[in-house]
Nucleic acid binder design. Structure first.
Lengths: 203, 203
DNA sequence: ATTATTTTTAATCATTTGTTTAAATAAATT
DNA sequence: AATTTATTTAAACAAATGATTAAAAATAAT
């Protein structure tokens, strides 16, 4: 075969398509995206999309897997660190998410939008619920509060940090600018750990 | 004019279209919905959709306004009740949402999905952030905790109750059945008010 | 240098999709 | 009953869209 240093030669156009696909799919969703938008943004010929990725759906799946790993993978190391307390883990999780979501504010709505639209289409490989349920963090939650379902705390913690990014169109008008939104998020780095500690103490 | 008891005669087919539109738009989103799906589900001729609602977009807006009012309107009375304490209001809000969302579990993801996709297209009429910010509830929050932005509590309370419905595809696998999901939600009716009280006490 | 292979391009296809049209039917008005 | 108005239907339109094709250009192998 001629020209097959796949990772050097072809990665250029392939990566150009992927980069544009990330942007357009994230902004418009799978159904709202036209392959022509991706081609145009990446500056490549429309046919190349199918040449490299076979179909719109296959290209989308590549992006979707990436995004899911980004959204749920950030906290993976923090969840299973054997050398931190429950409270330290909460602080770490909140800050890891704050850092990442300020840089990728539309990541949560993208992933959850497509997961809700598509229920079953992404069974391939990645299981965030296992990552969470089997974690050392959940074990510590069980020890601290054997009387409560640890999932209840997990849902609340993730909700408090992720929800503002999903509900942004509502709160943004009450908040004002994008800068003001970031200030709110940054305040939550300290607030949420404090709140969670208080929640864990309630009887 | 002949035949123009609009609320009696035409409401039948018009309402049939609307009912189907609610179902299909909610399930597939605006971009993922085909007008033919709505026509088929409602059992009417395709052309009637444009006859009654002019366009897919206009029909969608009717549904969207409805859904936004449903999502943000439920708690409107509770927010401005002058005869309840802050803690009582939290309990009321949580229960009003639990009742409504168990019956309409895909309402939050629908509204927030479309608001995020469409940023500006729904400036018409309904302003949830005003309803929240100008409420008696927020005034009470300010009195109780003048040191904190009341929005921080508001975001957390709404996040804790609404987020599980948005993140359901993730947690559902960890939870199991639909019944188990409802049990989790019902437990939160008591948990969240207790948690919020603890949060309000933190210094 | 010649040949084979990979990549890119422009044009086109076949469907899908929102909307319209013109005729038919039903209902109301006179 | 005759006429006008409103509703419904089947068919079709025009534009959009995901995908393919066949030829050209670029690159690699011999």
């Amino acid at each position: 075969m001629a020209k097959k240093d796949k990772d050097i030669i072809t990665s250029s156009t392939e990566e150009k398509i992927l980069e544009a696909a990330r942007v357009v799919f994230t902004k418009k969703g799978f159904a709202g995206t036209r392959t022509r938008d991706i081609a145009e943004l990446s500056g490549i010929n429309l046919a190349l999309l199918n040449y490299y990725f076979r179909s719109k759906e296959k290209l989308f799946k590549v992006v979707m897997i990436e995004k899911m790993q980004k959204l749920f993978g950030v906290i993976s190391p923090a969840l299973n660190d054997a050398n931190t307390t429950l409270e330290q883990k909460v602080t770490l999780i909140v800050n890891l998410y704050a850092d990442m979501l300020i840089k990728n504010p539309d990541l949560p709505i993208f992933v959850l939008r497509e997961l809700n639209l598509n229920s079953e289409a992404f069974g391939s490989g990645f299981h965030p619920h296992k990552m969470l349920s089997d974690s050392f963090f959940v074990k510590q939650l069980k020890e601290k509060r054997p009387d409560e379902n640890p999932l209840q705390f997990l849902i609340s913690i993730l909700g408090m940090i992720i929800f503002p990014f999903i509900a942004k169109p509502i709160f943004k008008k009450a908040i004002g600018s994008e800068k003001a939104f970031e200030i709110i998020i940054n305040e939550r780095r300290a607030l949420i750990p404090k709140w969670v500690s208080a929640m864990l103490r309630t009887k």
